[in-house]
């Protein structure tokens, strides 16, 4: 089908997805180039300072480091596309096999934090609009801004101090393993999930509030007021549906942060996720792992932003129901 022959909504969505895939390829080039430019030699890093020149040359040949960069890029890309992220230099293990359970852990933690944070942020945003400029609005904004302006490691240790050390309600270290019962798992991640929630709450809440307040200036809000609707009904029924696009956008950005930005939180709680894995291997200068994790983080970011764009397009009645 020709692009112009499609309905506008299908065309827009196809465009966004195509652009996203293209962007991902560009990012993969950047990631690959970035790790090549980094100083230091991988074989040197593996074998140490005392390695003989012969041993270094042999390892270089074995790793394919003597081939031109573009060949190494396409070899790497081909592997990624077939699900093979390469071999970790330090542990000599398949990256895919080590990474998948950790990715799953990170997604699980992010998902739990999001199921609390997103509805909470939107409801708080709606309430802040309902009682705008009043005490409730200021309390909500104050709480959310405080929790966001405190760095996550600080909140993390604060929560550990109170809930794990003093009250001893929850574990301070979030150990999870395969086959762990669900409730135990939830208990283990309760503290890191709370930290993540507190970190992302304010951004989404403030954007929801601003987006709805913007819509509240519209003439159709006056129409709704003159129908005798209650304030909260006006916000829920008339303002929110028209503010959905910016809200989705900020929610998706924060979800991406939940997955990509958990590094610090995972380290604090010794949680076996992607962040810890990344930090470990950055310090060991394990280039294939850094590349793999970087690519996955980029894919998550781009993927969630595509979803945000597509959702915003679908939420627009003018595109959904053309004339």
């Amino acid at each position: 089908m020709r692009l112009s022959a499609m309905s506008p909504i299908v065309r827009l969505i196809t465009q966004r997805i195509t652009l996203g895939i293209l962007l991902l390829f560009l990012v993969s080039i950047l990631i690959f180039a970035g790790t090549q430019i980094l100083p230091g030699d991988v074989s040197q890093a593996i074998l140490g300072q005392s390695a003989t020149p012969e041993a270094l040359a042999n390892l270089r040949a074995e790793l394919g480091l003597n081939d031109p960069a573009y060949i190494r890029y396409f070899r790497w890309l081909g592997g990624v596309l077939t699900g093979d992220l390469g071999t970790a230099l330090t542990s000599r293990q398949e990256i895919t096999a080590t990474l998948l359970p950790r990715l799953w852990n990170t997604l699980f933690l992010a998902f739990c934090a999001a199921t609390v944070a997103v509805p909470l942020a939107i409801i708080l945003g709606l309430l802040a609009v309902r009682y705008r400029n009043g005490v409730i609005d200021k309390l909500i904004s104050g709480f959310a801004l405080t929790s966001t302006s405190l760095p996550e490691f600080f909140i993390g240790y604060l929560l550990v101090y109170f809930f794990a050390v003093k009250l001893q309600w929850l574990p301070g270290i979030s150990t999870v393993y395969v086959g762990m019962p669900f409730l135990e798992r939830m208990e283990a991640i309760a503290l890191p999930a709370t930290v993540l929630t507190l970190v992302v709450l304010a951004h989404m809440m403030r954007m929801t509030r601003a987006a709805i307040l913007n819509v509240m200036q519209s003439a159709y809000i006056e129409t709704a007021e003159l129908k005798g609707l209650r304030q909260i009904e006006i916000i829920r029924r008339h303002a929110f549906p028209n503010a959905i696009a910016p809200v989705i956008n900020v929610v998706m950005l924060n979800l991406a942060f939940l997955i990509v930005g958990v590094v610090v939180v995972e380290v604090i709680f010794v949680y076996p996720g992607m962040g810890q894995y990344l930090v470990d291997h950055v310090s060991k200068r394990d280039v294939p792992v850094v590349q793999a994790v970087g690519l996955i983080f980029a894919a998550v970011y781009i993927g969630l932003n595509i979803i945000a764009d597509v959702a915003a397009i679908i939420a627009n009645p003018r595109l959904r129901h053309p004339k």
Binding site: A219, Y220, E222, T223, A224, R237, H238, P241, N242, R318
Partner: peptide, 13 residues
Amino acid sequence: VAQSAAAAFNPAL
């Protein structure tokens, strides 16, 4: 009944 019906109707409903 408002002056500009185009603005007075909620575009999402």
